[in-house]
Design a binder for these strands. Structure first.
Lengths: 216, 216
DNA sequence: ATGATACGATACCTTGAGTATCGCAAGTGC
DNA sequence: GCACTTGCGATACTCAAGGTATCGTATCAT
């Protein structure tokens, strides 16, 4: 009847239980083994292509050890993404902000084409049927990255490369919407040429000097 | 041992069995009842929120009657979308092609915000784990609509509203990528203002007279 | 009427997420 | 040392849902 001392119920953030002082401590090794196995399996076969039992097996861990840390399968995958993905898509440090933006778009392409692309696709798919996951994905994955974009756009404005009347939210959608579109729908490959043209079109519309629709 | 005379195996297109001349004919009523029930249920509760048994119950039909026509749940939903969606998002007939494009974007917004938006989200989500469904979705939903976009863009070029050096595929991604992005990720609402700004930015980059990036 | 197929209903199979429990391991406090 | 508490791997289990099989009946062509 009594629930196990520490079970993760309904929490989507990383397993952040209050560290109890008594009893056997959590195994740090198990944590990383689970996340590692999850990352490998999901990126290889996709979210629906694997089972929690497979994760447990590959991590050499009991299934309960997983559910003691995360409330469900999606939460594990989410944390696998957040914990193991380093600064692959950080904005490169170059003097010109607009160039940093352009280079970051290329990093984003590389990221989407890597095995991590499957993680994004999987989570986004699952998020369509779980408002809870959708919320977590927006807050923990999308939002921080969008803040980074706005940040660099503001620098570009300050450096006079982009018009000051820019709508930052819209601009972010214009830049990354087409990338996610191709990632999810697959109408065309996400190529270097594609992202170059994307950037180019964006700058035509936003750089200083182009005021807007010309008179006709 | 012998399989039922006519069962739908692996076919994703609409139930298009060769009309056998003998035996009891397929009930046309059942077809529409199933599609109708599917549409109503999925748009209300989402793909994962309903079961095939519920569809059968609401359509007052045996479950086998469904699986005799479609190979799986996703295929039913796909056909429900394609069969019951009329020309809601056709390009309005107005003299200026660029205006037709603008008006169609507004129709698209209305469509995404209607109950059909849930169908698109659902199918796209499921398609992430089924290359077969992804293919069907691209060919039967995305592609025809993209052809319509390219068509109207060509008219706009012919009418001198858009530069002739436009990349049609890229342009389509630029226009609809951000819409799908918001539909699926939900970073912001899909408003009239949003789509107006989207169109405006697009035209700044593509209308005749703006040649490209200015010198710096 | 006969033969073939579709029908609704129901029981069934299978897979996989999530739970419960058992005996053992690894810590803390005395 | 010893009791106490919690985590561990393993295993068995529950349950929901997609998909299949079958039964008796209904509806067509000939």
């Amino acid at each position: 009847m009594k629930p196990p001392p520490t079970v993760c119920k309904g929490k989507w953030g990383m397993r952040e239980m209050v560290a109890t002082k008594i009893g056997r401590p959590r195994s740090e090794k198990a944590d990383t083994a689970i996340l590692r196995a999850t990352l490998d399996l999901v990126s290889a076969k996709g979210y629906r292509g694997i089972t929690v039992d497979q994760i447990a097996a590959q991590a050499k861990v009991g299934k309960m050890t997983i559910y003691r840390r995360w409330p469900n399968k999606a939460a594990v995958v989410m944390d696998a993404l957040l914990e193991l993905v380093g600064p692959e898509t950080d904005f490169p440090s170059v003097p010109e902000a607009s160039q940093s933006l352009r280079l970051q778009l290329h990093l984003q392409v590389k990221f989407f084409k890597s095995k991590y692309g499957m993680l994004i696709r999987s989570l986004l798919a699952e998020a369509q049927s779980s408002e809870e996951l959708a919320e977590a994905f927006r807050e923990r994955w999308i939002r921080p990255r969008r803040l980074g974009v706005v940040d660099i756009l503001k620098k570009a404005v300050a450096q006079g490369q982009i018009r000051p009347d820019i709508d930052f939210e819209l601009a972010t959608d214009l830049l990354y919407g087409p990338l996610y579109y191709r990632l999810l729908i697959g109408t065309g490959p996400i190529t270097t040429k594609f992202v170059d043209s994307l950037y180019q079109q964006f700058m035509v519309g936003h750089q200083s000097g182009n005021i807007g629709l010309r008179d006709r």
